[in-house]
Simulated assay, not measured.
Amino acid sequence: MSNEVILRDAPRTVLPPEGGKPKAKGKSWTSFLKLAPGLILLGIVFGVPLAWLLRMSFNAALPGGLIQEGVSLNSYSTFFEASFNLELIWRTLGLGVVVTAGAFLLGYPLALFLLRTQSRFKSLLLVLALAPLLTSAVVRTFGWMAILGDRGIVNSALTGMGLISEPLKLANNELGVAISLTEILMPYMILTVATGSSRLNDAVLEASATLGGNAVRTFFRIILPLTLPGILTGCLLVFVLTISSFVTPALVGGGRVFLLATEIYDQAVQSLNWPLGSAISFILIALFAGVLVGYQRLMARLDWNRS
């Protein structure tokens, strides 16, 4: 029997198309239907209010708090034409950087300690580190007002010890706001670093010690790279919460610290200029989007370097 007959009579194997296994019919629709309830809920809870806010930003504000329906970029142009508003953007971003750096410098060592400790009280220590999250930010803000005030605990203690003759200006300024927000948001940094560093274990550290790595080299070559995803996530969370915070800057700042969030409140509640307040809100959302894009690129580069 010739080879042609053998090849002709042999059973044919149908190869799947390029890209892997052929998709089953209706599978995509099934996946969409599973996601539909969550997508609808997100659209109602987040999409509708944002759409209404976006529409409001294109209206025109009239004297007396009246609003003229229409499509106009007057609110956006009014915001960017004022140099004071541009300073608000830089001041808000600067405060976010300072608070994020402070939360990292104070929270990262605590997170590593909680992650590496072998104490039987480890669970209790973790609860104590995250306990401030169980207290309202308003309550903690009032606590910092009592601590940083001219007659607060810090100034009273320093005056009583004779170290200062006049109270330090720790409140009603950006310094007090930065100190307060650093403490208030530091638990988020601790939580994200501790939960995002699962790849750091005893085996890796023992391997580094076996190969002759000292404490400094082990930290920069092993510990820091393995905890970097948690660090980036914690910095993102703290930065976003800082630039969007209103209560702490308004109370600790004493009405003297002007940020984007406080300006939104002033325009919407005090000046009754809802279109301008809505426009500032979307400018703040644009800053969020820019930070998220940068975060995703850093994470993608980090994953690429690992691979």
Rank of each mutant, 00 (worst) to 15 (best):
G70T: 05
T30H: 08
M56C: 01
L62F: 05
V99W: 00
R217M: 10
V154I: 15
L205A: 07
M1Q: 06
P49I: 10
D9E: 11
N273K: 11
R301G: 09
L191G: 03
R151L: 08
F220T: 09
T227H: 06
V154M: 06
G160H: 09
L125Q: 09
Q296E: 13
K34T: 13
G196P: 10
V14H: 10
L236C: 10
S2V: 01
S197W: 04
K34I: 12
A111D: 03
D202M: 12
V291K: 02
A24R: 14
L224P: 06
I190Y: 01
L15I: 11
G160V: 10
Q270F: 15
D150R: 15
L163H: 02
V154S: 05
L211K: 04
V193N: 02
A157S: 13
I223G: 00
L73R: 01
G143I: 07
I67E: 09
S208Q: 02
T135I: 15
N3I: 14
I231R: 03
A286R: 03
E4I: 13
S165R: 13
D202V: 15
P109H: 06
N85C: 05
T192C: 04
V204I: 15
I179S: 00
T210P: 00
V204M: 14
L211C: 10
F239R: 01
Q270K: 11
L226V: 08
V216C: 06
T192Q: 13
S136A: 15
I243H: 02
A103L: 03
D150I: 02
L205Y: 02
G176W: 00
P11S: 08
L236N: 04
D266V: 12
T30D: 05
A279L: 05
V5S: 12
L35P: 02
L158N: 08
V71E: 04
L86C: 01
F46Q: 05
G64D: 05
L39Q: 02
V293T: 11
L7F: 13
G102N: 00
R91W: 08
I89T: 06
L7N: 11
A24C: 07
G143Y: 02
L15V: 12
L284A: 07
L110Q: 07
S83L: 12
I285D: 03
L224D: 02
P16G: 01
L148A: 00
L41H: 09
M299V: 15
W29P: 00
A61Q: 11
L93N: 03
P17D: 13
V154W: 03
R217G: 04
A286H: 02
A279E: 09
L106W: 01
E183D: 15
L272I: 14
V45I: 14
Q270T: 15
A178G: 08
T30S: 10
L42P: 06
L148H: 01
